[in-house]
Design a protein around this nucleic acid. Structure first.
Lengths: 203, 203
DNA sequence: ATAAAATATGAGCAATCCATCACTTTCGAA
DNA sequence: TTCGAAAGTGATGGATTGCTCATATTTTAT
């Protein structure tokens, strides 16, 4: 069961079709959930024919995979930017920036996020998508390590996990204002890291 | 689309059938995921006929709902026990106990947990199930309030959410030893609460 | 202008799945 | 032992869904 796109768009109109299909899929996920996501519905909402859909996606799952890939790419970009911007600045500032990136990215569309997270563990995901996941963790771990945290990898995984948990839940409860949420998430992250094993002056 | 069981088991064998059906559903969820969960497969694995299945469950979703209800009931019982046991004891001890309860309950079968969490937000859930969810938050909030935390409700939601996020991720990454995980989760929770607005002596 | 390549179409096949219902078997109280 | 209630059965109807393929249209290059 291949997952890679069967054909790469070469003209502008076909690229538009692909985008429309992905947007339609996200819309259906948001409005009706994973069970309502069928190829016919996606094509119809995208204003394309099923035939067109299958020109670029070899099967239904590949649509979800691509959705995940794009979301993760955006996330990685934001995290990288945050990490770059906070070089040399205090740790607290770096954390603020990372949390803000996560929230900006995931607070809207909590239903879509949840559906993708579920799909992610069930689908035979594309290697590149898996690599993006690792890259995100690695990037965060890099920031942590730079500030003397031991086992930065585990810490990064934990921090990403708890952040995602809080954001998703907040989104599901209808929180749309990032201000209060950012503060709370930062508190949790800072609290977790405060007592994390460090390699430095004051233990 | 009703969700309540259509018939309540009166004899031992029918109760066994219901249990077998739920166990089978959990097994399929764990082994193959939500998309593989169909009524025929559940009945077959349970060693019952589809006819029997539909005697107790009006539709497919009601199986998931009952699975969620039972899982939550166990969780609530454990949390209540934890809250009871730690009355009058130090806050740190109470948190330890709550975290341990959450982990014991959810670390195994992360795939099942994730599937149920997804189903939970998509399904028109039974009132009683929703009530259980609220009861869990309320119980945790009670412990927090007793220790002077302001807006204990929000804090409880955040703590439950971040805990679940960490546990699920750890489970998916193959962590099966609760010791290290318990410590890390406790650190995150404690850290979050340490800087939470309190109503007390030393601010 | 013309041919080749790229893109788009949608009827419909094959497979799956939910759920019913007429019927049989088992249980338990009298 | 008898008999009504409870429990169990599974072939199958009806609906949905993933996906193909033969064909039509549009774009690009020459």
């Amino acid at each position: 069961m291949p997952i890679e796109p069967r054909k790469t768009p070469r003209q502008a109109r076909s690229a538009a079709t692909v985008d429309a299909i992905l947007e339609a899929a996200a819309h259906i996920l948001r409005e009706s959930g994973l069970h309502a996501l069928n190829t016919n519905a996606v094509a119809q909402r995208a204003g394309a024919s099923i035939g067109s859909l299958y020109q670029y996606f070899p099967n239904k799952d590949s649509i979800l995979t691509e959705l995940i890939r794009r979301k993760r790419q955006i996330m990685l970009d934001q995290i990288r930017a945050a990490a770059r911007d906070t070089r040399g600045k205090p740790f607290a500032r770096a954390i603020d920036r990372l949390v803000a990136a996560g929230i900006a990215h995931q607070l809207d569309e909590p239903t879509v996020s949840l559906a993708l997270e579920y799909a992610e563990v069930m689908l035979p995901i594309h290697e590149e998508t898996e690599a993006l996941k690792i890259a995100i963790i690695t990037e965060v771990a890099g920031v942590f390590a730079r500030h003397g945290i031991i086992d930065a990898e585990t810490a990064a995984r934990d921090v990403v996990a708890l952040t995602r948990g809080m954001i998703d839940t907040a989104g599901l409860y209808g929180e749309s204002d990032p201000a209060s949420l950012t503060q709370r998430v930062t508190r949790a992250v800072t609290g977790y890291l405060r007592t994390a094993p460090k390699i430095k002056k004051a233990g």
